[in-house]
């Protein structure tokens, strides 16, 4: 029996041009699904079926995309829950957060809670054996943690997952978009007053202590901006020591 995998995809948005495209993380989720041999992939989107960017997912080699027809800015949770409850997939894959709309990254968790599935975030890869999923979870600094879960399970994918394959134009055009009528969904409310994101200055290194210390730190920081320490023709041992000390002091190496 083929394994049913539901892949939830959204419409992404390019950070430089603000143009719609396939979402980076959702495409990675689909890539993971496409690498499961013999899987029966259900590609699902809740939103506008006429959005051209959706075809980019079809271009990755999926024949059909099911679109749950809800208007823009609708809360997609109820329709997704209803659809997935009927579908009963063994795996649900999605990106960690959407690139537009709230994009708070809460949806996968709400979905998992509503479906009664466990959820594992930051999945970089997985294998399936005997009804269980062996997952590789991406930790910071390139580390990976093994996590095991029984199916069905919901996996959310971040940038550590393998890069998505190229979307081919012809496959994108030939793929089918299946429109599924769903009951009216409530509108999503922004969690507060929306303003364009403001770039926040990075905090300078915190110096607590006397005024003189803070002054000296501030002067030092200004003087050292773009200018570091220089050792000219040191003995190799001294050079090695200098590098070692620097790595230690910056916490790159643990002594």
């Amino acid at each position: 029996m083929a394994l049913d995998i539901a892949v939830l995809v959204s419409v992404g948005r390019h950070p430089a041009s603000a143009r719609n495209r396939r979402a980076v993380l959702d495409a990675r989720a689909l890539e993971l699904a496409l690498n499961v041999p013999g899987a029966n992939i259900h590609l699902i989107h809740a939103g506008d079926a006429d959005e051209p960017a959706l075809r980019e997912y079809l271009g990755m080699g999926v024949e059909r995309l099911s679109v749950l027809g809800v208007p823009a800015h609708a809360d997609v949770l109820p329709v997704l829950v209803a659809h997935l409850k009927a579908l009963r997939p063994a795996l649900v894959l999605c990106g960690a957060a959407a690139e537009q709309g709230a994009g708070s990254g809460e949806l996968p968790y709400r979905l998992a809670a509503a479906l009664g599935m466990p959820i594992v975030p930051a999945v970089a890869g997985f294998e399936l054996h005997g009804g269980r999923a062996q997952l590789a979870q991406a930790l910071p600094r390139g580390r990976r943690r093994g996590v095991e879960a029984a199916l069905p399970v919901l996996l959310s994918v971040d940038r550590a997952a393998p890069e998505p394959r190229q979307s081919a134009y012809a496959r994108a055009q030939r793929g089918q978009i299946e429109r599924i009528a769903v009951p009216a969904a409530p509108l999503w409310q922004p969690p507060g007053e929306e303003q364009p994101a403001r770039k926040r200055p990075k905090r300078l290194k915190l110096i607590s202590g006397s005024g003189a210390e803070r002054m000296r730190a501030a002067q030092g920081a200004a003087a050292s901006a773009g200018k570091g320490q220089l050792l000219v023709q040191p003995e190799p041992a001294a050079a090695a020591q200098a590098i070692y000390d620097y790595l230690l002091s910056e916490g790159i190496l643990r002594g």
């Binding site: 271009g59 080699g61 394959r165 190229q166 979307s167 081919a168 134009y169 012809a170 496959r171």
Partner: peptide, 8 residues
């Protein structure tokens, strides 16, 4: 290769 296969 590019348009049909996505194999660039």
């Amino acid at each position: 290769q590019t348009l049909e296969l996505g194999a660039t």
